[in-house]
Design a protein around this nucleic acid. Structure first.
Lengths: 244, 244
DNA sequence: CGGACAGTTGAACTAGCTCAACCATAGTGG
DNA sequence: CCACTATGGTTGAGCTAGTTCAACTGTCCG
């Protein structure tokens, strides 16, 4: 069951041969329900497992001395948020559930054993961590260079395209159970300004976010507005399929 | 010679056993001089080698449609800037020389062969790429959350601490051959504002940057001012030694 | 001597922040 | 069933950090 979810994750990242797939399916791990707002791994800790999100919505964030937060990424079902704990001794950010979720905890030992047997699987997991790294760079650029409305459009595009790639888009909408305060923590803005920016985006008719759901009415125009190019997501199928 | 540089890099990242070290020393690769402003790898390309910086100063950057740039990271001697090209098909940012430099190009084939023989070396290289990922997250937080003077102090702390860990600090100063325009491209500010911010930092007496060199007069106070905590650099010796 | 590049300064402008209300909704306990 | 509270969204008004534009200075180099 967990093995299957991991195999699905790796297929999203790259090619998985039949034999590698078989080996991955053998992964055991442990399923754990997580309550809303509960931390799964905390800054400074040294987890002995990696996390795979089965159902729900997570965020990675860091807290600063002055109480402000910066969200580093959001995670949807099928994502593997804390791969880095395999080789880094201490977490430098926390990962928590935004809504009630279900995660698989896979002991590092089990992963390392799998890697020893199946180098191609190790390569895929590494690749997954590298594409996350690419995502952090894009967030850096987005928050540093784009004005509030552009940055928000960019984030909406990202979540929509990632959701689509994960098969989580229904019609023209997907789950995005965030408060405006959380959007602010991701975009480096204040809650008040997110509110006003969201209203102005709404008025364009390209996109909307309400009741924890994201509605994208014109992805192409939205992407253009937010200077969004899905290249950095390193999706397997390429972006051609994405702008459907 | 290249093997030696790689071994040194890996020692900075983690433990290297005698046998692993021996294997690493066997790495060949090719030394290449790079002129000022020359790109080593370009966005969209698929390099067949990874890069190790032997001498000089590099930057990773992305260009946007409107002509603005975001710098994602700076690299000093001993750094391995483009590890991700091993497993990602296309570069999503470019790496170029800021001053005339010398790099080692190590073919992916050679690295993969080494990994197959020495899994612990693979783990170290992976670890190196993970600590870079951590650095991108910190830059995201810095540019999104800190005011201009704090962000600049934070960047100065980072470069100083990394230089110190690499043995490149002389007295209380290290090379940082950047123009104010480049500082602006890193911090998400304009050149004009970087100029004024730098002046105000100068007046505090904590730090100075002139003629391509960084002078740190009080690291502890500067770190406090820029809310800098070296944890995210994942240095082997820990930060205790760092704040000397 | 001239031209390119980097740093510096001034003045006007604006995107986004701050503070302080107020409103809507949903859950909770009596 | 209603009052109470907590949470999240909305609005207004004044403020400020950082931008923009445009000029000027210094320095290196051919």
């Amino acid at each position: 069951m967990i093995g299957e979810a991991l195999a699905k994750h790796l297929c999203r990242v790259g090619e998985l041969t039949r034999e590698d797939r078989q080996a991955v399916l053998g992964v055991k791990g442990e399923v754990r329900p997580v309550r809303r707002h509960e931390d799964i791994v905390k800054t400074g800790s040294s987890p002995t497992f990696s996390v795979l999100l089965l159902r729900g919505f997570l965020q990675r964030y860091g807290s600063r001395r002055d109480g402000s937060r910066q969200i580093h990424s959001f995670y949807i079902a099928g994502d593997a948020p804390s791969l880095e704990s395999i080789h880094l001794d201490r977490m430098d950010s926390s990962i928590c559930a935004i809504v009630s979720s279900e995660v698989a905890l896979i002991p590092h030992g089990e992963l390392l054993a799998l890697f020893a047997q199946r180098p191609a699987v190790e390569a895929l997991v590494w690749r997954s961590s590298l594409s996350q790294s690419s995502l952090f760079r894009e967030w850096l650029t987005r928050n540093s260079r784009l004005p509030a409305d552009g940055a928000m459009a960019h984030l909406f595009c990202e979540m929509y395209v990632r959701s689509k790639a994960a098969g989580l888009v229904d019609q023209n909408s997907c789950d995005m159970p965030l408060t405006q305060e959380m959007l602010a923590d991701a975009l480096g803005l204040t809650g008040v300004h997110v509110n006003r920016t969201l209203q102005s985006l709404r008025e364009t008719g390209l996109v909307d976010h309400k009741a924890g759901r994201l509605y994208v009415h014109d992805l192409r125009k939205l992407a253009n507005f937010g200077d969004f190019d899905p290249q950095y997501l390193h999706l397997r199928n390429g972006q051609a399929a994405v702008f459907s």
